[in-house]
Amino acid sequence: MPRVSYTAPATVDEAVKALAGAAGLAKVLSGGTDLLVQLKSGRLAPELIVDMKRIPEMIGIREEGEFFVIGAATPGVMLSAHERLEHAFPGIVEGVDLIGSTQIQGRASIAGNLCNASPAADSVPPVIAARATAVIAGPNGRREVAVEAIVIGPGRTSLAKGEFVVEFKVPKPKPRQCDAYLRFIPRTEMDIAVVGCAVNVTLDAGGTCIDARVVLGAVAPTQLIVDEAAQALIGHKLDADTLAKLDLAAQRACKPITDKRGTIEYRIKIAGVLARRAAAIAFERAAARA
């Protein structure tokens, strides 16, 4: 690995200053599970690494009114262990849980998974499906944006120089709202998603869907919010016809590539399969909250 400087600020303000003061490329280190691989391979040669794990507000999960607030550098293992978050959004925890091995879980964070800007990031679809926002700090102060506004292409984000995600705010679920995340990989573990799909639904007392978000991963340059798929669910119960429409809507939305992890044709088919299966789980979970 080429030489680099390292700093571990104690506050967000110090981190902003460190990032702003860097002459060359400065990278944020939270879990490091993507960053270190990129450093070693030479794909990235930053001048400065800013380690966020010493900033207390960036680690941990707290509840503030109608929101769960998740520190950006919180490792996966802490999210999985948070019972109230897991109960509220099992799909988010499923997505986080699927990032790499137990060892990766000990380090990897949602912010890292998001800002690495891979279309296949497992934690991102369920977070978008939950209509979460990200609080961003930078030289011009703080701003809050929808999570889906951050990734703009493979490896590219809308964050300006010196900006970084401080925390995520996830609105707590309404009555009979729940989610699910599924991904397909060739093995049972350790692979990058060929396709990922998060479904977040809200049902009425009779089991009819009154709100939904369907988000696909790894089938386009960024995560896709598939409105047509959500529309296929809203106003319906989960019958065969609804599932078929959802399947088709998911397939139609895909704009995948062929690469070593999957072909265009295969990814499109699997997007439909996963949408159906994830919806079935999300409906069942939401209905169980009645």
Binding site: P186, R187, E189, D259
Partner: peptide, 29 residues
């Protein structure tokens, strides 16, 4: 049988030279 293979691009360069995409069985498989 199920997953291991070398994947080359059109220039004859290996695209999966690592345990991430050269998929040997893991314990849960």
């Amino acid at each position: 049988a199920l997953n291991e293979e070398y994947i080359y691009d059109k220039d004859g360069c290996l695209e999966n030279p690592g345990f991430l995409d050269y998929r040997i069985p893991v314990a849960s498989d």
